[in-house]
């Protein structure tokens, strides 16, 4: 019991004194997962829209593959990204293994199917005739796609939340392709694991509180936007 109370007290002192190392880890986590989310939104929304708006043979198979990939285990992604980036792997020439770029790459791969899957579902939820209505009002094909994206913006926000939530909290891929290098590739999750295994519960607790608060605040902001839009 003393262990936990002590840990929580020390954790808060670390938080309130803005410990340099804890701050750096937090900022790196935000950067890496933020960039990975942006990349996955760009790819996922484009691919998802393309899948949803076009009829082609094998569409159902593609959609089911995307849906399966939404639950891609981060360790599996970590393993394959490591193999590809390994010194004599296919992408070894890039020399980015054990750098933040490798983590961004792995996290983008994890989040993209999540964003894609939700985008496909959101677009398919719109009434079929809406597309015809938009075209009948004189929209070009590009204007039509833009209108459809605007119409499904609430679901797309959910896609962003799900994507970000998925990557900020994952550890398998980050530790495998980043290597948890102090001051370079150490993010909140990898640092928490390491400090716990070293018995530094105070730091571990502080890190996990930050992780929770981050996830909470970002979702809070997005939820506010969503609710305001929804009731307007």
């Amino acid at each position: 019991m003393e262990l936990i109370i002590d840990g929580i007290l020390k954790a808060f002192s670390l938080l309130f004194t803005l410990d340099r190392e804890v701050l750096d880890i937090t900022i790196l986590s935000l950067k890496v997962s933020g960039i990975a989310t942006i990349i996955s939104v760009i790819i996922g929304v484009s691919v998802g829209t393309t899948i949803a708006l076009n009829e082609f043979p094998g569409k159902r198979i593609i959609v089911s593959l995307v849906n399966t990939a939404m639950g891609l285990p981060p360790v599996v992604v970590g393993l394959f990204v490591t193999i590809f980036l390994w010194r004599n792997g296919p992408l070894g020439f890039l020399g980015i293994l054990y750098t933040p770029y490798a983590i961004i790459l792995a996290q983008s791969i994890i989040a993209t199917p999540i964003v894609t899957g939700i985008t496909v579902a959101a677009m398919q939820q719109l009434p079929k005739k809406l597309r015809l209505q938009i075209l009948a009002l004189g929209a070009s094909r590009l204007q039509m796609v833009w209108m459809l994206l605007k119409e499904s913006r609430l679901s797309l926000l959910a896609a962003v939340m799900a994507g970000f939530g998925g990557v900020i909290s994952e550890i398998g891929a980050s530790i495998m392709v980043g290597g948890n290098i102090k001051g370079y590739t150490r993010v909140l999750t990898t640092a928490t694991v390491m400090e716990t295994s070293k018995g530094n519960f105070d730091i571990a607790i502080a890190l996990s509180i930050i992780l929770l608060l981050l996830a909470y605040f970002i979702n809070l902001i997005l939820t506010f936007i969503q609710q305001r839009e929804g009731t307007r």
Binding site: P127, K129, L130, L132, Q133, A136, L137, G138, A139, S140, Q143, M147, K150, E151, R153, E229
Partner: peptide, 26 residues
């Protein structure tokens, strides 16, 4: 040309923005 369907198929925006949509496309 333009067309009205059986369902109103309005956009999730204000009435003004809805009526303006065709003009904005142009």
């Amino acid at each position: 040309i333009s067309m009205v369907f059986q369902e109103p198929l309005l956009f999730n925006a204000t009435v003004f923005d809805n009526v303006a949509s065709g003009l904005r496309f142009r």
